[in-house]
Computed example of a mutant assay.
Amino acid sequence: MDHYYSQPMNNKDKPSPNHDIIMKSRKKIEITGVKHVESFDHEEFLLETVMGFLAIKGSHLKMQNLNVEQGIVVIEGKIFDISYLDDQYGENSKGFFSKLFK
């Protein structure tokens, strides 16, 4: 009978981070799998996640918590819209941002 032993994973075997969105009463949102915060102000956040770019729109938005190592962002305020900006905008960043910030 073969025996299998559990070995610790090294960094190259590490699975890609999960991407989850947890919203509480449209007042607080926790997002995991965040790679980079592109831009933010009190009306809109643009985040690069492991599943693509994510735009969060609202009013009185503020970043409550940012954990870069774990890829977690917590935003508070009144949330109106959460949307992914798919690859249909292409690789051209000028076109991507010009459509985003009309």
Rank of each mutant, 00 (worst) to 15 (best):
G33F: 05
T49F: 09
F45Q: 05
V34D: 01
H42E: 04
I56P: 03
L46G: 06
K35E: 11
H60E: 02
K35P: 10
I75R: 07
L61K: 03
G58K: 00
V74N: 12
F40N: 03
F40G: 03
F45H: 00
V74Y: 04
E44P: 02
I72Y: 15
E38T: 13
E44R: 05
I72W: 14
M63H: 07
T49E: 04
E69G: 03
E43C: 03
I72C: 14
S59T: 14
F45K: 03
I31D: 00
K27M: 13
E48I: 11
V34W: 08
V34G: 06
Q70T: 14
T32G: 07
I75C: 11
A55G: 03
T32Y: 15
K35A: 06
E43P: 00
T32N: 11
M51Q: 13
G58W: 04
S39M: 10
E44G: 00
G58V: 07
M51G: 10
L47M: 11
F53G: 01
V50F: 14
L54V: 12
T49C: 09
E38V: 11
D41I: 07
V74R: 05
G58M: 00
V37F: 02
E44K: 02
V34Q: 12
E48K: 08
A55K: 09
L61H: 02
L54E: 07
E48H: 15
S39G: 12
H36P: 14
E43Q: 13
K28I: 12
G58L: 07
S39Y: 15
L46D: 01
D41H: 01
G58A: 05
N67Q: 09
H60M: 01
Q64D: 15
S59W: 13
E44N: 06
K57S: 05
I56E: 01
M51A: 14
G33Q: 04
I72T: 13
K57P: 11
T49S: 05
V68R: 03
E43D: 11
E38F: 15
S59M: 06
L61W: 13
Q64K: 03
I75W: 13
K28E: 11
E44V: 00
G33P: 15
I72H: 11
V73H: 07
H42P: 00
V74K: 07
K27E: 14
V74G: 08
K35I: 01
I75L: 09
E44D: 13
L61F: 15
I31C: 01
L61G: 06
M63F: 09
F45C: 10
G71I: 04
D41M: 00
H42L: 00
N67V: 09
G33W: 07
K28N: 12
E69L: 08
N65D: 13
G71L: 05
Q64A: 09
Q64G: 10
V74L: 04
N67W: 15
T32L: 08
F53K: 07
G71A: 07
V68L: 08
I31K: 10
T32Q: 14
I56K: 03
E44Y: 02
H36D: 10
Q70M: 12
E48S: 12
L47T: 02
G52E: 12
G71W: 12
D41Q: 04
F40S: 03
S59F: 04
I29M: 02
F40M: 07
I75P: 01
L46Y: 06
